[in-house]
């Protein structure tokens, strides 16, 4: 069933892609134009994903509920990092990332916090001070950017 659903999702993406791609045209330039290659990609993709809906192969076993929750928690941490890196600055955001992700992965909370604190400062010193990548110490929330 999951394979069929995946096939449907890919089919829909391929169909939208083909639909939007078919009208691209350039007033001058090369013979083929910008629309043909997307057709060469989109149409076979529709055919293949369609065949996967009709004749699925293989099976998917999704993780149990509590594992699914842990995956969602990890995703929330990762997305949160992307959103809060600039406002909070590198060390604070990275501390939260490492500590929270460590806990989600089953580390003891105290150990994960210690790891987060030491690694976030360590990485900042390594990348910003030693290797010269500009990483803001304090984020835009604290007026330093």
């Amino acid at each position: 069933m999951s394979i069929r659903l995946g096939g449907v999702a890919i089919f829909v993406i391929a169909a939208l892609y083909t639909y939007y791609g078919k009208d691209y045209s350039a007033p001058f330039g090369d013979v083929l134009g910008p629309a043909v290659f997307p057709m060469i990609v989109g149409i076979p993709l529709m055919v293949l994903s369609g065949s996967l809906i009709v004749f699925p192969s293989g099976e998917v076993t999704w993780p149990a509920r509590n594992h699914l929750l842990r995956q969602l928690a990890a995703l929330a941490v990762l997305v949160g990092y992307a959103l809060f890196l600039v406002p909070l600055g590198f060390p604070i955001a990275t501390f939260a990332l490492i500590a929270l992700l460590g806990m989600v992965l089953g580390g003891a909370p105290v150990k994960a916090l210690i790891l987060g604190a030491s690694m976030s400062l360590g990485l900042w010193v390594l990348f910003d001070q030693i290797l010269g990548l500009p990483l803001a110490f304090l984020g835009s929330l604290f007026g330093d950017f």
Binding site: A82, I98, L105, A112, S120, L123
Partner: peptide, 12 residues
């Protein structure tokens, strides 16, 4: 549990 968060941080 300690390795993968560091990998994530370095990727970011």
């Amino acid at each position: 549990w300690a390795l993968m968060p560091i990998v994530a941080a370095v990727s970011f």
